[in-house]
Amino acid sequence: MSAKKDREKRREERLQRESEAAENARRQRLIKLGSAAVFLAIVAVVVAVVVSQSGTSGGDTELENVAEVETGLANIPQHRLTLGLPTAKVKLVEFGDLQCPVCRDFAVKVLPELIQNKVRSGDARIEFRNFPILGPESIEAAPAAIAAGEQNRGWDFIELFYKNQGIEQTGYVTEEFLTSIAKGAKVVDIPRWNRDRRSAAAKNEVKRTTGEAERLGFGGTPSFAIEGPGTNGLEPLGTLGSLGEFEEAIDAAA
């Protein structure tokens, strides 16, 4: 009887050892596979983030798209930060932040055709008003655009800035960067541009347009407003997306 009990006890102990060994093996396998999976996932995400950001690096004094900007704006009158014929019936106002990536997307994806279809034809003129909301670097950049506008190179400055924009608030809006944009925009008198952008008048102008955007109820950039024979003064449009929406708004205001 006792021999039988011993055998059963030994059998139970063996089974328990086997079960523990199997669980240990499972745990080891889980750790091995889990670590490999976590490693692969982290590598995949890091690669995706780096690739995603690499297309937006910008912020370099080795400027890109200088010729493209010049060609896009060639032979269009500029006065301060207004682009287009002064006689154009409709005025489209963009409240923008030079650091804002959505403003850059507007400048790259919508503006070229809008300029071609509505500004070159003399139907509308576009005015850029600074609404620097993203931080100190935006506030630093805004008067520089105004100062370029004093030499009627404001739109070249704005367009070139957008096309070389870096990642916001990463310290790329340096003196060197702003100067390289001004030179690329063919601002002729750089010492004057430096004086103008540091002047109280330029800073006050930024405050004025910022206040105006807030009064119009805007909270983000780019926001738009329009004025023409068909509007009651300057009317807010808010955030528009497609070229068609801008063209409709201009036609309605004409």
Binding site: L33, G34, A36, A37, V38, L40, A41, I42, A44, V45, A48, V49, S52, P101, V102, E168
Partner: peptide, 25 residues
């Protein structure tokens, strides 16, 4: 393991995209 790795990468990338939506775009 494949499902876990893929979904972890997808989850991480979704977090990055959500960050972009909220704070960049």
């Amino acid at each position: 393991m494949g499902g876990f790795a893929l979904s972890l990468a997808g989850f991480g990338f979704s977090l990055y995209l959500t960050y972009l939506e909220l704070f960049v775009i």
